[in-house]
Amino acid sequence: MRAPVSKALMLATVLAVAVTLGGCGYGPGRGTASSTVAGRADLDPDASLVVATVAVSTGFDPHRERMGGERPYSFPVFDRLTRMVTGGKIEPMLAVSWETAPDAMSMRMTLREGVRFHDGTPFDAEAVRINIDRARTLPDSTVKTLLSTVDRVEVTGPLEVVFHYTAPTPDLVTVLAGPAGAVISPGALADPNRDLRVDPGDAGTGSYLVERVVPSQSVSYVRAPQSNWDPEAGKLAHLEIRFIADDRTRDSAVRAGEVDIAYVNGVVAQSVRQAQLAAQGSTLDLVERPTNVLAALWLRPDPPGRPPAA
């Protein structure tokens, strides 16, 4: 599946770019992309990274995601079965391999061995079955349409599942790189008092735990005490993601050193130009990466008061 030709821009300090792409666990790539910055700084395992983005956190439950902008907030906590890296390529995450049947009516998937959720629950085939069933049947699931052709998940071994479809589905492995493929501890799902939208707690296998939430402002994370299955993840002690909606405010924050990385609004020419100018002859660097996120406009062809088009 070819990734849409859209690009993401980030304005960052040179050091911050090297740190982020070195596997701090922020975002879906988790360090798989190489930096364009010359040289590479040694990572301080006690360091912190502050990122400014344009989306506000409205919850951490990946199966109830309200908008794509929530993913930077939930992905440091919840790993997915697969992951999409720069360029749209799908790579293993909690799944290590998969094979789609010739008729695309099923897919056999082998899972990673030795992984545990932060609450101590083992990650296994039964956990995958429980999560996929939840994601496609939860009344307020926002990912169920992405799993509409999944008929059932068959557990064929401790670390092996088979997805059975109602119609040919050759692209499910791509879907599982997003929130539909996020895996939550069955122990947490079985607790009626847990609300993952408010606090994910120890329900994930990711490299970070949520430490503090300031509603409509920021989310702070601390590196999980358990060793992570991915040696490139969780290399920094703390991560903070701040919601800064205004383009100029984000630009000012990274220039002033208040944040290490700031998202640049690629659909606003002035914002891109400002970032380009800021990166010229300074310690800031403008990083451009392909992304599968498309920018779109909703157009109303027949606004109120105008006669319908002939």
Rank of each mutant, 00 (worst) to 15 (best):
Val54Ile: 11
Val143Asp: 08
Ala18Met: 11
Glu91Phe: 14
Ser282His: 02
Ile261Gln: 07
Ala233Thr: 11
Glu288Arg: 04
Arg255Glu: 06
Pro307Thr: 00
Ala245Glu: 04
Leu43Gly: 10
Thr169Met: 11
Gln270Leu: 10
Ala245Phe: 08
Val268Ser: 08
Phe60Ala: 12
Val143Met: 01
Arg152Tyr: 10
Ala101Trp: 01
Ala295Pro: 10
Leu172Ile: 09
Glu240Gln: 04
Ala237Cys: 13
Asn193Arg: 06
Pro4His: 00
Tyr263Cys: 07
Asp119Thr: 00
Val183Tyr: 09
Val267Lys: 11
Met67Cys: 14
Pro200Arg: 04
Pro301Gly: 01
Gly187Gln: 00
Gly39Asn: 08
Val85Thr: 05
Asn228His: 00
Ile184Glu: 09
Pro301Leu: 03
Gly181Lys: 00
Val293Glu: 13
Gly204Pro: 14
Met107Phe: 14
Ala275Gly: 15
Leu286Ala: 07
Gly39Tyr: 05
Leu294His: 05
Val77Ala: 10
Ala256Glu: 12
Ser48Thr: 06
Val293Gly: 09
Thr86Asn: 09
Lys235Cys: 05
Thr53Lys: 07
Ala269Gln: 11
Thr149Arg: 04
Pro62Cys: 02
Thr36Leu: 12
Ala47Asp: 13
Pro72Asn: 03
Leu286Ile: 01
Ala47Pro: 13
Asp230Pro: 06
Ala55Gln: 11
Glu258Arg: 03
Ala47Arg: 04
Leu11Glu: 02
Met84Thr: 06
Ala127Gly: 12
Val210Gln: 07
Leu9His: 07
Asn228Gln: 06
Asp133Glu: 15
Arg80Cys: 14
Leu286Lys: 05
Arg80Gly: 15
Pro192Lys: 02
Arg197Pro: 14
Pro186Ala: 01
Pro4Asp: 00
Asp133Trp: 05
Tyr208Val: 03
Asp124Gly: 07
Arg197Lys: 08
Ala180Trp: 04
Leu299Tyr: 10
Ser218Trp: 01
Met107His: 10
Ala295Ile: 00
Thr82Gln: 02
Thr53His: 10
His238Ile: 06
Ala135Met: 06
Leu94Cys: 15
Phe163Tyr: 11
Ala47His: 11
Met10Ile: 10
Pro231Ala: 00
Ile90Pro: 14
Phe60Ser: 07
Ser220Ile: 03
Arg30Ser: 15
Glu258Met: 08
Pro158Ser: 03
Glu99Phe: 15
Ala52Asp: 00
Val115Trp: 12
Asp79Gly: 13
Lys144Met: 14
Pro215Gln: 02
Gly25Lys: 02
Gly114Lys: 03
Leu21Arg: 02
Asp46Phe: 09
Gly29Ile: 00
